[in-house]
Amino acid sequence: MSGHDHDHHHGHDHGHDHGHDHGHDHGPFQPDIEDRPLTHYQAMTEAVADLLVAKGIVTPAELRKMLEIIDSKSPAAGSKMVARAWTDPGFKQRMLEDVIAAAAELDIDAGGIPIKAIENTEGVHNVVVCTLCSCYPRLLIGLPPDWYKARAYRSRVIREPRAVLKEFGTEIPDDVELRVHDSTADLRYLIIPARPKGTEGWSAEKLEALVTRDTMIGVAVPQP
């Protein structure tokens, strides 16, 4: 939704009689965020959107639709794929060969940029970063969390991954190899976490719940 679509906007027809000589008196309450001026970059965002519409480059409907698509993307698609890979070795093989095609089998749109699936095993744990920017398989796991895009994670995880994972509460035993994969604009990664022991016979739904976003980035492992 646009920053201007205030649901509680009731126009100027409400015949209020509060004096206007006091500027903007909000009494003891914190002002709503809408009451502050837009920041420079918020105003720029509104202005660019308005100009693109005015010039006929995008329509308001296209903009609205795109916002809905962005909101609809979540880790659920990735979780579904991983849970299927856990229970269907043929699917896992196809997913390791071609994530986008495997996603299509489940009616999931993984976009057009190549994504490589990497499997965690007993001997190898994998974790994903984008040191240069924020490349991320967002169509499969939603928009990236703040820390994924921030300096600390991008700088440190390739040099001291065990220490960084420990900050996430994830301890990788010393005898397990830790591999870090650096994404680019042309190739993203999705981790297939190792299926936890004791989950044999679980329903797809129950398995999917174990496959959180962080397990598909590799900073966490599924917790049954």
Binding site: H4, G11, H16, A47
Partner: peptide
Amino acid sequence: RAMEEAQARHAEAAKAVCP
């Protein structure tokens, strides 16, 4: 210009929610 308009529109909307 468009940034000024966006800012003005925002200020109007903020006024309108004032109780």
